[in-house]
């Protein structure tokens, strides 16, 4: 009893000053914290939020670097809805997204499961699968243009099998497919490694137990392996959809949207409006519309991320 009362009595003078220095120390530390955050706040404001805001604003203006901007109301949006290329671009983008799912999405899952079963040289297979991912894009374009050439190696193999020559780049039925095959070749390795880590982390006893209970190989894959990597499959599905919906660089570099607009994606149309037609207002408006469409996808991705599909 005595002691507890004695403490406040004893130092009636001292705690006050100590509290005072503590408070200034706290403010000083707040100040340092804000100072540390300041450069990031400035860069995020100047290089992300400002352009985002300007994009919405510019979509209602005619952007002219020389004479200055002039207000245009909804004219830019009217131009978009009157332009038939926009519909083509939307269709092409959906086609591209669909093809990338049909051709590219299942490949890494399949190969990850196959590689996980290898008893030897797993490391080699892993490195070989990932190797194309480090090839620079510009090299990729140059090499594959030759591989797809009417007198290139792929057509040589096809001819040996007895299939007539396919002009992969020029034929408008093949051009988008060729691009998706090339991109799958390059990038499936990184997705494959994520699946592989997940497949290898499935406890071995589960398979043991299933086998004792008489489960065949397919049912082991279907009921154990695939459910175990479901989180990764969903996450990479969302990421792939978000990436392919914005794809344009390959289409731009390989074919410039041709032949006859067959590879003109929506994002490529934005680029063309800006840098070919020099109509930055319409390009900004196209961006705003794209954002509205994609934000639905982004909300889904956020949900999946929050369920903890990432770092497992």
């Amino acid at each position: 009893m005595e002691q507890t009362t004695a403490v406040p009595m004893n130092g009636q003078h001292q705690p006050k000053t100590r509290q005072g220095t503590q408070r200034t120390g706290k403010y000083k530390r707040y100040l340092w914290g804000y100072l540390f955050l300041l450069p990031a706040v400035i860069t995020f404001t100047l290089f992300l939020w400002l352009p985002i805001f300007k994009g919405v604003l510019n979509s209602f203006y005619i952007v002219d670097f020389v004479k200055g901007n002039s207000f245009a109301g909804f004219d830019n949006y009217k131009t978009i809805f009157a332009d038939r290329d926009v519909m083509t671009a939307v269709k092409n983008t959906l086609y591209y997204m669909g093809l990338a799912l049909a051709i590219g999405f299942w490949v890494p899952i399949l190969i990850a499961i196959a590689i996980s079963e290898m008893r030897r040289f797993q490391g080699f297979a892993r490195v070989a699968a990932y190797l194309p991912y480090v090839v620079p894009f510009v090299v990729l374009y140059g090499v594959w243009r030759w591989l797809y050439d009417p007198v290139g190696p792929i057509n040589a193999v096809l001819k040996a099998v007895g299939i007539g020559g396919i002009s992969f780049m020029v034929d408008r039925n093949w051009s988008m497919i060729s691009i998706v095959i090339m991109e799958t070749w390059q990038s499936f390795g990184s997705a494959m490694l994520i699946y592989l880590a997940a497949v290898l982390s499935v406890p071995r006893d589960w398979y043991e137990a299933a086998e004792i209970d008489g489960a065949g190989i397919w049912s082991r894959i279907r009921h154990i392996t695939l459910p175990a990597i479901k989180g990764q499959i969903l996450l990479l599905l969302m990421l792939q959809l978000i990436a392919t919906s914005q794809g344009f660089q390959t289409q731009f570099a390989m074919l410039d949207g041709g032949p006859n607009n067959a590879t003109l994606t929506y994002a490529l149309l934005i680029v063309k409006y800006a840098f070919v037609r020099l109509d930055y207002g319409v390009a900004s408006a196209l961006g705003v519309l794209m954002f509205l469409a994609l934000s639905i996808l982004a909300i889904f991705q956020y949900r999946i991320n929050n369920r903890g599909g990432i770092g497992q």
Partner: peptide
């Protein structure tokens, strides 16, 4: 993170 970079690519250029 929720705003895809392609959508503000051109405004970014102007900025």
């Amino acid at each position: 993170l929720f705003i895809p970079a392609t959508t503000y690519m051109i405004p970014n250029f102007i900025n």
